[in-house]
Design a protein around this nucleic acid. Structure first.
Lengths: 94, 94
DNA sequence: TAAATATTTAGATATACTTTTAAACATGAA
DNA sequence: TTCATGTTTAAAAGTATATCTAAATATTTA
């Protein structure tokens, strides 16, 4: 189920854009929303999907909630991708 | 557009299962369909999505069409994932 | 506590995706 | 060419996803 939510989360271009926007550092929902044409409610929905896929992390700072990239999933994603594309042939180590 | 079709293609669990089934070697649509509860038409649809995402390759052998994994995209996928999860902080090399 | 700001949740609509059945297309064999 | 097998395409139905507006929750400030 975790793998599933992860792939689904990455499937949407707006969510991938959110991840890229968070690369330099944490941003609030309001700051993120400036980069999208849709409503804050819609952005919030995307953020909740990224959050339940464990791709982003939240921290409240006063009124604001700061969203940040969870870079610790990177390794897991690599593993998942390798799992999908390895040839699975015994004795093929290189 | 290529990135988009790639992520979308990977979003569906049946399509990821197809990729795994193709790891040991090429299979026909009929052979693949034994592993799924849905119709051959539906499988064919999934295969066309994987194909247009350049994740599988087809080769006709007589009546049969053999589907095989396109492992050459692996590197591109790694690049895409690295692009999404790098911190993009200058001077952070470790 | 009341007002202002930041964000999320609920309910509704529109769009996209998956699946099905039936028909069409492609190849090989009689 | 006709029949059988393998696969795809078309049209329709069902399900899921994205987005909107309006209302609700949380925090800070007056």
């Amino acid at each position: 189920m975790k793998t599933e939510s992860l792939f689904r989360a990455l499937a949407d271009p707006s969510r991938r854009k959110i991840l890229k926007l968070l690369q330099p550092g944490p941003l609030s929902a309001g700051e993120l929303s400036e980069h999208f044409p849709f409503s804050l409610a819609s952005l919030s929905h995307h953020l909740s999907i990224l959050k339940s896929a464990d791709l982003v992390h939240t921290e409240r700072r006063g009124q604001y909630i700061h969203y940040s990239l969870n870079t610790s999933v990177t390794e897991e994603i690599y593993r998942l991708m390798a799992d999908l594309f390895s040839k699975h042939r015994s004795g093929e180590s290189k």
